[in-house]
């Protein structure tokens, strides 16, 4: 504690006392020079204060700038991702065309092609069109915590549509396949590992005559209806004559192989 006591007892520079003691009684010859130094020191102090304050002041917009830069970079990466996805689906189309021209030469090839078409349709490897439901859901207008849609809500909605007889579903342009995950990441919902922004447009191809009623009766439909009536979540369901559900370009099995002889 002696260090602290010393600090409290002698806050003043010892130099002042020493200088006062040794100072000659008469006035000081070097006074003028010291004056200049005094002014210089206070000038430096004022300068330091000012630049420290202005530095502090300016670093706030700096943080904002960095945030903006990050957002731009995210957007750029997003655009790049989507162009690469389009490119990939174009290439997949080309592969499919070449495959078809190769297979159509023989009769066994043609049978194989038919099988392939059916499988691709069901797995979501190719884009499909047809009549169906278009459901647009959005967070409540004053989206506090309760009125915000979660991943589980979207899962329920999609499951309700499957139950209602949907044959192909896409959410904001992402085709749902057996390998598509709908998950929450932070406050955003991700489908196929891309985060979505509301509103969520869910396209479901199926029988427009029976689907709306079956959806309303399904547990998923009731779940969403509950959200609509209790949390002001907005949902509009319309039947459409022609919907285009895109292909899932990334569908591929990397590890699974056909087991045994066919």
């Amino acid at each position: 504690m002696s260090l602290l006591n010393n600090l409290m007892d002698h806050p003043l520079d010892e130099g002042y006392a020493v200088a006062a003691r040794t100072r000659p009684k008469q006035d000081r010859p070097a006074r003028a020079r010291h004056r200049v130094m005094l002014v210089a020191a206070t000038l430096v102090l004022g300068f330091l204060l000012a630049i420290a304050a202005s530095q502090n002041y300016r670093s706030a917009p700096e943080a904002e700038k960095q945030r903006k830069e990050l957002i731009t970079r995210i957007n750029q990466a997003d655009t790049r991702l989507s162009t690469m996805r389009t490119q990939q689906s174009q290439l997949a189309d080309e592969v499919r065309r070449l495959q078809a021209s190769g297979l159509s030469n023989t009769s066994s090839g043609a049978a194989l092609q038919q099988q392939l078409d059916a499988l691709e349709l069901q797995t979501g490897a190719i884009a499909v069109t047809g009549q169906g439901l278009k459901a647009v859901v959005d967070d409540a207008k004053n989206a506090d915590k309760e009125g915000r849609l979660l991943d589980v809500d979207l899962q329920q909605l999609v499951n309700g549509l499957w139950t209602a007889g949907a044959e192909a579903i896409s959410v904001n342009g992402h085709r749902l396949t057996s390998m598509t995950a709908i998950r929450g990441a932070g406050s955003a919902i991700t489908v196929d590992y891309s985060s979505l922004t509301p509103p969520y447009t869910v396209l479901a191809i199926g029988d427009t005559a029976t689907m709306p009623a079956r959806f309303a009766q399904s547990s998923g439909g009731q779940w969403v209806q509950y959200l609509v009536s209790n949390f002001d979540v907005r949902m509009t369901i319309t039947t459409e004559e022609s919907l285009l559900v895109p292909a899932d370009a990334t569908i591929a099995l990397r590890y699974a192989k056909v087991s045994g002889p066919r």
């Binding site: 002014v39 206070t42 000038l43 102090l45 300068f47 330091l48 000012a50």
Partner: peptide, 15 residues
């Protein structure tokens, strides 16, 4: 007095 003047001038220059 002269010290305060120096301080003010320093702040002004810094700003």
């Amino acid at each position: 007095m002269i010290a305060v003047l120096g301080l003010v001038i320093g702040v002004v220059i810094g700003l």
